[in-house]
Amino acid sequence: MSEKNHNVSRRQFLTYTLTGVGGFMAAGMLMPMVRMAVDPVLDAAAEGDMNYLVEFDELGEEPIRRELTYEADDGWYESEQIETIYVYRDGDDVVALSAVCTHLGCTVSWEGSEDYPEMFYCPCHFGLYERDGTNVEGTPPTEPLHRYEYEIRDGAVYVGQSEPQ
């Protein structure tokens, strides 16, 4: 039997086999590396989760201050993030406002200054916001406090991400 009668020569068979096996080995090594490199990206998709904030029954007309703590995964660096939120009831609606001043990011407080009752007050550069988060003209902030999306499950308020109003 001469070589020519074979559809695949010995040389070709070996080449294919080695390429195939080599390919599997390379893939076996590369896959975990790729997986590790894209891992933070895959995890980030879970950030749309809603977090427990407060019981609905606790809410009244007066904004109350709550702190939300969660683990933030910034690439490989994990750190504890804290967000201060003011939450109150407006009829059947719940208003959850971020306490981060839209000017330069200080934490504002409800009725934080005796001179400005019924307002959110920023101690850093004296920014003011109305009860619904609207910034007061003539003070440093240029946009309203950010508002959280929320949902009510089993009588408790859960919040997601805060968005500009």
């Binding site: 804290i82 981060v100 001043c101 000017h103 330069l104 990011g105 200080c106 934490t107 920023c122 101690p123 850093c124 550069h125």
Partner: peptide, 14 residues
Amino acid sequence: NLMTDELERQFHGR
């Protein structure tokens, strides 16, 4: 360190 971090969070902009 903990106290400074928290203080920074309160007065971030100044």
